[in-house]
Amino acid sequence: MISLRHVSFSFGTQWALKNISLEIGKGDFLFLVGPSGAGKTTLLRLLHGAIPLKRGQGTVAGFDLHTLKAGRIHLLRREVSVVFQDFKILPERTVFANVALALDVRNMPRTHSERRVRAVLRGLDLEAKAHIPCAQLSGGEQQRVAIARAVVVGPQLLLADEPTGNLDRELAMRLMSIFLQFHAHGTTIVLATHNQEILACVPDAKILHLEDGTVHWTNWTMHAAS
C-alpha cells in the first residue's frame, strides 16, 4: 500500500524528513509517533500529495509520488482519505452535506450517495444530527463528521493526523474504536499521534517512532530500510 525508499524533504534549508524508507502492506495499522516537529505531519502530507516528493522514491495506493502530475493528484486523493486534528469541515453546512461532499466530487448519483452517507452516519451515531450545521456540534461530533467524510468513499488508505488531539480521554477511546471498525473491514490506517495511551488500543499495530525527521525506532523489521 505504501512504499517509500530514501525519502527526504526539506522546507528551505530545514530538513523535515531524512532518508525515510518504509513498507506498509494492505490492511496494516501504523502508528506514527514522536515529539512535535519530528516529521509526522510532513510524512502524512507527502503520502496524500499535499507536498511533492522530490528526493527518493515512493508509491502510495499504486500512484508513483515522484512522477505524479499536479493535475492527477485528485486521483490519488480518491484512494487516500485524511482526517485532521482541526477537522477541516465546513461549519456552515450540515453534517450530511459535509459527508456527501466526498461523494459529490466523484459525481456519484444522488440516490446512491444518500444511501451511503446515511449508512456511515448511522455507524458513527450521527444520523439524528444529519441536518444540523456542523458549527452547532461539539468537538467530538465534528471529529466524527470528519471521519465519516473520510470513510464514506471506502478509501484504500486512511491517514489521520492527531485525530484525538482535541478530544478528552473518553472521546479519544471512542474514536479509536471507530478506527478499529474500519480497520477490521480491511482499510489500511496510518495514524499520527503523541498520545501513548491510544497505542494500546491496537496491539498488533506497527509503530514507527520519528525524531528530527528520521526513523528513530520501529516495532517491526523494515525490510526496505536503508
Binding site: 493528484i73 486523493r77 480518491r78 477541516k88 465546513l90 461532499l101 466526498a102 466530487v105
Partner: peptide, 14 residues
C-alpha cells in the same frame, strides 16, 4: 479558502 482546501482534500478535480 477553507472550502477549496477541503474540496482538494476529498479528491475534487481542478
Amino acid at each position: 479558502r477553507n472550502e477549496v482546501e477541503i474540496l482538494r482534500l476529498v479528491g475534487a478535480a481542478r
